[in-house]
C-alpha cells in the first residue's frame, strides 16, 4: 500500500513569489525573514521524499463559477496548466505546468464516491494560486505529479466545517489503502483570519490576531474537538469575511488525525494576514525521531512536540 509520507498545511500567500524574487528597492523589508522561514518549511517536505503530491486548495472564481459550482472536486488529468491572467496581473505569478497522477485521482474519485462523498471531477483543470503557491514555496522544481482537490470555501452555500474534516479523514484512509508503493504527501492550503474586499482588509496584521492564535493552537495540537466546538459557518464571519478558507486547514487536521500534534510549526505575522506552516509525519520518517526536538515550533505559540 502507499505510504502517507507527510501531511502539510499552510497559508497560501500570493505575494510570496514577488516578495521573494524582488531585488533592491523593490524588495520588501520582511522578505528575507519570509524566505528563511519558507526555506526551512520546504525542508520538511523534501526530507519526506514524496513521489506524488495531493494538493488541497480552492479555486478563486477562475475555472469554477456560480453557474455550476462543485463543493468538492478532484482533478483527473495527465497535465495541469496553472495560474491565470489576473494572478499574473495582480501577484506577478508565473505560468506553470504540472504533471497529474491520474491513477491516484481515479482511485480517490471511485473510492471517495463509495465512501459517501459525491465528488465532482474535472478532466481539464487549470489550477490557481491556492495550489501553485505551495508548489512555489515547498517544491519550486514543480517536478512531482499532483492530484488537485478543490473545496468550496468561497461561494455560499458552503459545506459545514465537519464535512471538511470528514473529507480529510477519508482522503487519508484512501491514500493508505491505495495499492501502490508510492510515497504520498498531502499538502493543503487555507487561511487564518482574512478579510478581502471589506473594511478590515490590508491592515498592519491579520484582522483577528486572537483567532489566529487559537487557530494555530488547534492545528498544532490536532485539537479537532476544540476546533469543531467553536467553528461554525456563522462564526467564521467574525474573524474576517474570507476566513472560511480556514476550513481547508480543518480538512488537513482531518488528514493528520485527531490529537495529532504537528511535528513542525512556524508562523509569520505579516501585514494583512498571518502566515502559518505545519508539517506532520504520520509514520515517522528517516531520522525524524532524533531531529524532532530540534524543529522550530511556532515561537512559543504551540506546545513542544
Amino acid at each position: 500500500m502507499a505510504e502517507l509520507a507527510a501531511v502539510i498545511a499552510s497559508t497560501h500567500h500570493p505575494f510570496y513569489y514577488r516578495a521573494s524574487t524582488a531585488r533592491g528597492e523593490d524588495r520588501p523589508p520582511f522578505a528575507d525573514e519570509w524566505v528563511r522561514k519558507i526555506t526551512a518549511f520546504r525542508e520538511t517536505l523534501t526530507r519526506a521524499n514524496p513521489d506524488v503530491l495531493v494538493m488541497v486548495g480552492s479555486d478563486h472564481f477562475h475555472q469554477l463559477w456560480l453557474d455550476n459550482m462543485p463543493q468538492f472536486l478532484i482533478g483527473k488529468a495527465p497535465v495541469y496548466d496553472a495560474n491565470w491572467y489576473n494572478e499574473e496581473r495582480e501577484f506577478g505569478l508565473p505560468r506553470m505546468v504540472l504533471k497529474g497522477q491520474e491513477d491516484l485521482s481515479g482511485y480517490l474519485l471511485r473510492e471517495g464516491l463509495d465512501a459517501g462523498f459525491d465528488l465532482a471531477f474535472s478532466n481539464e483543470l487549470r489550477i490557481d494560486h491556492s495550489i501553485t503557491c505551495p508548489i512555489i514555496t515547498l517544491r519550486p522544481e514543480a517536478d512531482l505529479p499532483i492530484v488537485p482537490v478543490y473545496t468550496n470555501i468561497f461561494a455560499p452555500p458552503l459545506p459545514q466545517p465537519k464535512r471538511f474534516v470528514q473529507l480529510g479523514r477519508t482522503i487519508r484512509e484512501l491514500i493508505e489503502s491505495w495499492p501502490s508503493d508510492q510515497r504520498v504527501a498531502v499538502i493543503g492550503t487555507g487561511h487564518l483570519s482574512l478579510e478581502l474586499g471589506g473594511p478590515r482588509q490590508f491592515g498592519p496584521h491579520g484582522p483577528d490576531p486572537e483567532f489566529d492564535q487559537r487557530a494555530v493552537e488547534w492545528i498544532a495540537n490536532g485539537d479537532l474537538e476544540g476546533c469543531l466546538s467553536e467553528v461554525t459557518l456563522d462564526s467564521l464571519h467574525a474573524p474576517g469575511n474570507a476566513t472560511h478558507g480556514f476550513m481547508d486547514f480543518m480538512l488537513m487536521m482531518g488528514v493528520a488525525g485527531e490529537g495529532a500534534k504537528a511535528d513542525y510549526v512556524d508562523t509569520l505575522d505579516l501585514f494583512h494576514t498571518m502566515e502559518a506552516y505545519f508539517t506532520w509525519y504520520p509514520s515517522g520518517g528517516p531520522g525524524l525521531s532524533e531531529e524532532r526536538a530540534c524543529e522550530p515550533r511556532s515561537e512559543g505559540k504551540g506546545e513542544s512536540a
Binding site: F61, E90, A155, L196, G197, Q201
Partner: peptide, 17 residues
C-alpha cells in the same frame, strides 16, 4: 457593490486592476 452583496473578492480584484 459591497452593500448590494456583490462578492467582495470579485469586486476587489477587478477594482485593483
Amino acid at each position: 457593490l459591497f452593500e448590494l452583496g456583490a462578492h467582495p473578492f470579485l469586486t476587489l480584484t477587478l477594482f485593483i486592476a
